[in-house]
Computed example of a mutant assay.
Amino acid sequence: MDLKLEFIVLPVSDVDRARSFYEAAGFRLDVDQTFSEDYRLVHLTPPGSECSIMFGKGLTSAAPGSAQGLYLVVDDIEKARAELVGRGVEVSEIFHDGGGLLHHGHDADGVVHRGQGQERLAGPHPDRASYASYVTFRDPDGNGWGLQEVKQRAPGR
């Protein structure tokens, strides 16, 4: 059985502001439809992704900004960061933890890559190892995103 993740619902407080942010970040607008005064659906897709995001009015009871640890995988962390900055997105500096795939802690940014007690190290991983270099950003509500550089996927991925 194939189980493909199709979309993630993001809790936002201002639908138009969120739409503007994600479009500015390069996400493709797929749908923006108002069904009633209490129900609006906005559906966007990150470039190259098969999984989309949805937000709107009447979609979720989750608190705006409560979605954390959302990852976008890129093959060049420096280029991806520069593009987001060029699009006006406030993005962290590039960092690494030296361990990558084997670490599963959480940090204050909601990033799920680090082991407990590890500090972020400035810059990309020295060997540019897959799953080891990151940047983070937040949407206007505080939903937390990470970009993770993957040059070669782990077996079975």
Rank of each mutant, 00 (worst) to 15 (best):
G117S: 00
F35E: 05
E93D: 14
E93G: 00
L102Y: 07
A80D: 08
S52L: 06
Y131A: 05
F95P: 11
H125E: 11
Q152S: 12
D16Y: 05
F21W: 10
R120T: 13
Q33W: 11
V150L: 07
A67S: 15
M1R: 06
D30E: 15
E37S: 13
T60N: 04
K151I: 14
T136Q: 03
R157Q: 09
S66L: 06
R87F: 10
P47V: 10
R120S: 14
Y71R: 04
Q118C: 06
G105E: 06
P126H: 01
E78F: 12
Y131T: 12
G156H: 05
D32I: 14
V73C: 05
I53H: 07
R19Q: 11
P46N: 11
E6L: 11
Q33A: 12
F95K: 02
R40V: 12
F95D: 00
R87S: 02
E37T: 12
Q118I: 03
A154E: 03
A62S: 11
R17G: 02
Y134V: 15
D139I: 15
Q118D: 04
L70S: 00
G123C: 14
L44I: 14
H103C: 13
D38T: 10
G115L: 07
D38Y: 10
R17D: 05
F137M: 15
Y71L: 15
Y71M: 15
L72R: 01
H125I: 13
V12F: 10
R40H: 08
D14F: 08
P140F: 12
A122D: 12
Y22F: 14
R17L: 09
S20E: 11
T34G: 08
Q68Y: 06
N143S: 12
V15Y: 03
V111I: 10
Y39M: 15
P47I: 04
R19S: 13
K79H: 09
S130N: 01
L29H: 06
F35N: 08
S49R: 00
F137S: 07
A154C: 08
E83F: 01
Y131D: 04
F7D: 01
E6R: 11
R153V: 09
G69R: 06
D141G: 13
Q116A: 12
G144L: 10
R153C: 10
K4A: 09
E149I: 00
I8C: 01
H106P: 02
L121K: 05
I8Q: 09
G100C: 12
Q33G: 08
V89N: 01
V150R: 06
G115R: 01
R87L: 07
E119W: 05
S130R: 09
G58R: 04
P11T: 14
R157V: 10
V12K: 01
V42K: 06
